[in-house]
Amino acid sequence: MSYPDDEDDAALFRSAIGEVTPMRPVEPPPVGKPKPKPRARMKELDESEALGEFARLLRSSTPLEAGDNASYRRDNLPPRMFQRLKRGQYSVQDELDLHGASAAQAENLLRQFLLEARAHEHGCVRIIHGKGLQSDGGAPVLKNLVDRMLRQRNDVLAFHSAPPTQGGTGAVLVLLANR
């Protein structure tokens, strides 16, 4: 229903707001070089610090050679359990092969592998790092990386180079703590 005394809506609006000043035209921003793509600087910093930490650990202790046994036992682990690990008497529940990986790749793979092993409640795992015979005249990189990383983890109770039938000094058996 319309009322005869109602005015046109547009005219009513114009009379309510009064006179209007038009806006000045906005100039587009000057065309120049595009902004650089964002970089993951914190990730790059973390990776460089991690590699620096690994290099520092290698310098602070004598690195393992190709034929050396990698061995470590926490004080709270009974010696008898460690002897069983050294003999390969625990059932290996999962395995990680690091052959062909760079140090950075191996570090990431090892961290992820141990997280998954812990999530699946594995008690013993095997990590194959190789003997390092292909290393450029220096110490075996992956073998030393695995040795240093495993020593720093709270969920690792002990590790020892595998018996000859399970990879010898090119692999390590790791005994993991229960949750």
Rank of each mutant, 00 (worst) to 15 (best):
T21W: 11
R80Q: 07
V92T: 04
A16Y: 13
R126H: 03
I128M: 07
P140G: 03
G132H: 02
R87K: 14
R118G: 09
L98K: 00
R39N: 07
D6I: 05
D75S: 15
E47A: 06
G168I: 09
L98S: 01
S135N: 08
Y90T: 03
D136M: 13
A66W: 09
Q152E: 15
R41D: 14
L96E: 00
M1A: 15
L115N: 12
I127W: 00
G138F: 08
A158S: 12
R153L: 15
A16R: 15
P63L: 04
A10R: 10
P36T: 05
V20T: 13
M149G: 04
N76T: 09
P140Y: 02
N178W: 12
Y3E: 12
A40S: 11
G18K: 04
A104W: 02
L77D: 00
L12G: 15
A10E: 10
P29T: 10
S61W: 11
L145I: 07
E27N: 10
P29G: 07
A117V: 02
L98H: 00
Q112R: 13
L45V: 10
R179P: 06
V156W: 01
R111G: 06
L145E: 03
L175H: 01
E121K: 14
R74E: 08
I128Y: 05
L57V: 03
R41F: 10
D5W: 08
S135E: 07
F13G: 07
P36M: 02
N69C: 06
D75Q: 13
L51V: 01
P25C: 06
F159L: 03
L58W: 10
A101K: 12
S161G: 09
R87Y: 05
L145W: 02
V174D: 00
R179L: 08
F159S: 00
Y90W: 12
A106R: 00
A10Y: 13
P28L: 11
T169W: 03
